[in-house]
Design a protein around this nucleic acid. Structure first.
Length: 410
DNA sequence: CCTCCACCGGAACTTACGGAGT
DNA sequence: ACTCCGTAAGTTCCGGTGGAGG
């Protein structure tokens, strides 16, 4: 008892007085720093485009493209914050507001509208109403006070893929129906050829202006990391090679700043956990493995049963040195279902589940044409099997034969 | 040069669910 | 109590595909 409470005390102490961190929150992806290194031009350009807002003129709708972690969201937040600060000092006779919606999280028309309403302090039920009714309430809330509202739709491609562009169409044409207020849309996407999938009518109004964010280079990432490290870490705890390594690793992933910051933060956490006084190269290496591993386990935890079975089927085929094609996976999958005494899904559905595995990044699925022998998908797992087993073992529906699978693996 | 495999993937439809409005 | 609504997951149906092998 004494030993345990002593250890808990140690843990608490370590959290309270860190050897490593000054302020860990500064490394979180949603933290917007006072300056955005190597995005000065973008900040300026976006500010120019949005500036008319402070005069009460509706800015053009803007579309921002760029891969993940290139600063799109940060720049947008940053500029909007400055504009709102400015507006606050000017005492305008209208309200300047913004609503940020992440469409990857809210990827249905309904939930996007719900969060738009909520940002106007308009309560709406999370289900039950019709879309037109929801839209009406949004407009009513908007008209309560004269206002200019920025609607930021982050990862808007996810919304369109899921639910079509109806809502986008309606939003782009809302202004003529508003008497006292105005809406400007900022669309953000990391799908570079997203607008091709849009209705031309939507495209022309939504993307009146366009901006493209290019990936950070390794050197630029280093600057970003240095700036954050200064405020997040205690002085002198980072050994020299840490920041360049994080930058290089992230640059390999198309210059993803979020990735770089994650690496740095987790490396710090690992160092802290083992009571090291410095963050070393080895901590970064281990951070890389840990991030990936945690991601896999988390994804697996929330994956539906049939998705898991599809994954296991692929795994078994790879172990048996059979090329996993859709057909092969499906027949193994059916066998697993029989063992579990559950109804298998259709071939068509499994084909989709395989695509989902690809999308999540647990596997890659490539369509191959084998001429005489038809067209199929060639599936390949892209994560270590250890992490897969780790993620699956909690599922008690699988425990009965997961042991067998494990043994077969050895 | 044609055929034909073994699937791909779009689209419409079904079912179940949670809840609103009346 | 009843009807209406949107979403998620899954099924059914079906036209399309492109190159190995005849």
């Amino acid at each position: 008892m004494y030993v345990v409470s002593k250890r808990i005390e140690d843990i608490l102490k370590r959290v309270l007085v860190s050897n490593i961190f000054k302020d860990r929150e500064k490394l979180r992806p949603d933290y917007v720093p006072d300056e955005l290194p190597h995005r000065e031009k973008e900040v300026e350009k976006l500010a120019e485009k949005l500036a008319p807002a402070v005069k009460g003129e509706r800015p053009s709708n803007i579309f921002i493209y760029g891969l993940t972690g290139t600063g799109k969201t940060a720049v947008t937040r940053y500029v909007l914050k400055m504009i709102k600060d400015m507006a606050g000092r000017l005492q305008l006779e209208f309200k300047l507001m913004d609503s940020y919606v992440n469409c990857k999280v809210n990827n249905t028309n309904y939930s996007v509208l719900v969060s738009l309403c909520e940002s106007l302090n308009e309560y709406v039920p999370f289900t039950g109403l019709s879309i037109p009714e929801l839209f009406r309430r949004f407009m009513r809330a908007l008209e309560r006070t004269p206002s200019l509202m920025f609607v930021v739709l982050d990862e808007v491609d996810a919304l369109v893929k899921q639910s079509g562009d109806d809502l986008l169409y309606k939003l782009t044409r809302i202004n003529p129906d508003l008497k006292r207020s105005q809406v400007a849309i900022v669309g953000i996407t990391n799908d570079l050829k997203f607008t091709e999938s849009l209705d031309p009518r939507v495209k022309s109004t939504l993307a009146e202006e366009e901006m493209v964010f290019t990936p950070y280079t390794s050197e630029e990432l280093e600057d970003i990391l240095r700036q954050r490290a200064r405020i997040a870490f205690k002085d002198g705890v980072l050994s020299d090679e840490v920041i360049p390594l994080c930058a290089t690793l992230a640059a390999r992933e198309h210059g993803d700043a979020r990735r770089a910051l994650d690496l740095l933060r987790v490396a710090g956490e690992i160092a802290e956990r083992e009571g090291s006084l410095k963050v070393l190269e080895t901590h970064v290496r281990r951070a890389q493995v840990e991030i990936e591993r945690d991601r896999v386990i988390e994804v697996l935890r929330t994956m539906p049963l049939h998705g898991k079975l599809t994954l296991i089927s692929t795994y078994l085929l790879e172990k048996a040195k059979v090329e996993p094609t859709t057909g092969e996976v499906y027949s193994i999958y059916k066998g697993l279902c029989r063992k579990l005494g559950i109804e298998p899904l259709t071939h068509r559905r499994i084909s989709d589940l395989i695509n989902e595995l690809d999308m999540i990044g647990l596997a890659t699925a490539k369509v191959v044409n084998r001429g005489r022998y038809g067209v199929t998908k060639l599936i390949k797992l892209s994560v270590p099997e250890g992490a897969i087993f780790e993620g699956l073992k909690e599922d008690e529906r699988l425990t009965s034969f997961l042991g067998d699978v494990g043994r077969a693996a050895r």
